[in-house]
Computed example of a mutant assay.
Amino acid sequence: MPGGRLTQQDRQRIATGLADGLSYAEIARRLERPTSTISREVSRNGGPGGYRPQQAHRATVQRARRDTPAPPRAAGPPGGAVEEEIIELAVRSGMPRMTARVHVDLLLAEDGRRTAAELTRRLKVSPASVSVAVNFLVQAGYVRRERDPRRRRDIYVVDDEAWYHSIMISARQTLEAARAATAGAETLGPDRPEGQRLARAGAFLERVTLDMMESADRWRALLA
């Protein structure tokens, strides 16, 4: 239809016109389109010497799909948006998505406590997935494991102290890396460029990490 979007047939006629040496204005006249439409179509799809009608049509369809607004999401529970936002932030910081989901579910639990069975049921995932996630969280200090002796099951707990412990665990790991870099610098020799590079990195990481640990200790009372 003249004035509407270009069809695949229109694009084939454009390609034929270019092959015949027609000007943009002449092709536009034959298709009953503005010359600017033809010029824009050709320039964004390979130019006069590289225009391919099938590829141009596919590219246009893909662009249209990307530009189509997503349908509005159904309203969920009040905490749903907050939960998804925290999960996305955790994923962007490097945490595996499943681990982030488990962590956030614990964070938003009223008492900060869940069993593995509760996590499996709530998140609709396998027990193995939950096990991997909580092991990561426990090792990183985000969560602690408590044993229920009466029912012989583990309970996973997140509390305010978890933030302190997670920072300290991460800091100690960074401090080990800093000191390994310093030791590597001594092995390579302080006069060699790679030795100097490692020495600078080790000194920087050690100083920053010690400052972080000191700050965590100083402000720990805020979590009480």
Rank of each mutant, 00 (worst) to 15 (best):
N135C: 11
S126L: 02
G50A: 09
A128Y: 10
R101C: 15
E26S: 08
I38W: 03
R44G: 00
R113A: 02
A59E: 11
L123D: 12
A81V: 06
R63Q: 13
K124L: 06
Y51G: 01
R114A: 07
R30I: 02
G76P: 04
S36K: 05
G79E: 15
T60W: 12
A100L: 01
R66Y: 13
R97W: 07
A116D: 05
R101P: 13
P48R: 10
V132E: 15
P48Q: 08
E88H: 12
D67H: 12
R52H: 15
G112F: 10
E83T: 06
E84S: 06
L137C: 03
E41K: 03
G46Y: 05
R33M: 01
A81I: 11
R29P: 09
V102S: 06
R101K: 13
R122I: 09
A75C: 11
T68Q: 14
R122T: 14
D67I: 03
L22A: 05
V61I: 11
T68N: 06
K124H: 11
T37K: 08
T35L: 05
N135A: 13
A116H: 09
R30C: 03
S43I: 10
T115M: 03
V61L: 11
R63M: 10
E88R: 13
S126H: 08
R113Q: 10
A64M: 07
H103I: 02
G47P: 03
E32L: 06
G76D: 01
L119S: 04
A74M: 09
E83W: 11
T99P: 07
R63C: 01
Q55A: 15
S23I: 00
P77T: 12
E32Y: 12
L137E: 00
E88A: 14
T115S: 14
A74L: 14
L108Q: 14
M95Q: 05
T60F: 14
G76W: 00
T115E: 09
G76V: 01
V102H: 10
R92D: 15
L119F: 08
V82N: 15
A109G: 14
V132N: 14
S131Y: 09
V91R: 02
A74T: 10
A100C: 10
L108W: 12
G76E: 05
R52W: 14
P72K: 10
